[in-house]
């Protein structure tokens, strides 16, 4: 039994990651934004990059849905941990 699938364009993903890294540094040091907004933007960019790596380089996009769900399972726990810690500040 044999199936075929197309390989993702890995170089395009690499270019996207590199471009997002440049944007991150520029936003962090050039953009005159309030600290809170800056943090949200930087974390969003980091999550975007992490998703690109997970989806295309780790092939989660092409894996069975149940494996992708298992891979995502610690993320709510991680978010709860970080948000609970953040809540201490407010």
């Amino acid at each position: 039994m044999e199936t075929t699938r197309k390989q993702p364009n890995y170089v395009m993903v690499w270019a996207g990651l590199a471009a997002l890294t440049v944007v991150e540094v520029l936003v962090a040091f050039i953009a005159a934004l309030p600290k809170e907004i800056l943090i949200v933007i930087l974390i969003a960019l980091a999550v975007w990059k992490a998703l690109l790596v997970a989806m295309y380089y780790m092939h989660l996009r092409f894996e069975p849905l149940r494996l992708a769900l298992m891979a995502a399972s610690p993320l709510p726990l991680a978010a709860i941990l970080v948000l609970a810690v953040l809540a201490e500040k407010f």
Partner: peptide, 20 residues
Amino acid sequence: MSHAGAVAVSARQPMPGMGV
């Protein structure tokens, strides 16, 4: 984001459970 090169994914044996 897909490439022209297609690869054969052989399913040599059934993979129950998580599918890998």
